[in-house]
Design a protein around this nucleic acid. Sequence first.
DNA 1: GCAATATGGATAGCCGTACTATCTACGCGC
DNA 2: GCGCGTAGATAGTACGGCTATCCATATTGC
Lengths: 223, 223
Amino acid sequence: MRISELSARTGVPVPTVKYYLREGLLPPGERTDVNQARYDEHHVDRLRLIRALVEVGGVSLDGVRSVLTALADPGFGVHDVLGIVQDAITPRSARPGTPEWAGARQEVAALVGDLGWDVRPGAPALDQLADLLVAVRTVTGTATTAAEYFGLAARIAADLADAEVRSVEGTDRETMARNLVAGTVLGGRALDALRRLAHEDASGRLFGDGTAHPGGDGTASRK
Amino acid sequence: MRISELSARTGVPVPTVKYYLREGLLPPGERTDVNQARYDEHHVDRLRLIRALVEVGGVSLDGVRSVLTALADPGFGVHDVLGIVQDAITPRSARPGTPEWAGARQEVAALVGDLGWDVRPGAPALDQLADLLVAVRTVTGTATTAAEYFGLAARIAADLADAEVRSVEGTDRETMARNLVAGTVLGGRALDALRRLAHEDASGRLFGDGTAHPGGDGTASRK
DNA sequence: GCAATATGGATAGCCGTACTATCTACGCGC
DNA sequence: GCGCGTAGATAGTACGGCTATCCATATTGC
């Protein structure tokens, strides 16, 4: 197919497709002439994955590029691809170097050790957790420990992660890796959105003033 | 205190503090002369909250502004403030209007109804979940149902949300609301980071090749 | 008392990200 | 054979979040 059909099938404007080609997010089409190229289903899939990661997952184009590169390279196993996508979506820590940060980072490492999780010692998520611990202490003015603040969420995350990772098992490497990427990025957003809704429900039961939003019957039951 | 001390106490550069003042994120200091103003502890707290939300929480300045406005207005109850912060941090849906989206949105509403959650029918997180369902179907090429895809995460989110909301109870409105805001934003990031680590652990057990982490920062960028 | 520095206020400029527009030379399809 | 589509290149745009500069006035260290 030509670029206009690629655009029509995915809903991505032609100039944007050209831009992605320039940026190396899409492999060039098969050249049939000096100013003609042909694209195939693989391009459609790629483009759909890019848009899902960017629009719904909020991943930067730079992050998408490194993920796609790893996906396309059979030298990377499924587990390697996961590490790469995590590095691509984890914000880099802003304030390493202060003593309180170093302490927080230490606590995080200890917590992860206690949980028995086998993760890269340099995983950026560890730094991010240190950032978060510092931030929550600064904002609340309390001396919350890592175990207090992260404990419940960590146990819950372990259960969920197990189920999610197992759910992609069983197909070929490419499909597993792609689904693991989608699961990591989109699943993270989903969990966050669900948590917000659950917060709203819980907050309404605890702090609500009884004025149910129009359409509700005012009873605040659950489960 | 004067602006330089405010800057020193929070680590925020003076020009940025001025910018926040211009943008209405910080209330003006108490004027003592034609070109002198005084700031107090309240400004320090505000600034720390702003930086936590922006740097660690990834919230936009626009979102921060609406949150701070609601926090400062005693007319908003704790539950109202939560709704406002959620609206501020939930990305607006990109593709409403297509039939598949409408169907997904319908399914999401049904799922939330089944769970017995009492949430605003127009909560943006519901639209976001519809986006996610459409995206995951597009990427994987399967017809996953909302219950399948969201079910486990929803139950888990409910447990966690309950504990989190209860943990802010018991102080004055201002403190509760502030901690609920911080809990929503920072707690969401924390859960996401923990989930990534748990994914890494689970993936290593299932897909790992046994070669334990040999350094490397994992980034595979270009340009 | 006085120079050096800081302050508040305003305006303008910068940087990165992600596109979007325009231009050119050529090919395809009726 | 003529108009639209295409590939490729270059340039421009929009937005968010700062950063720099300027000015008139205050404060501070000596």
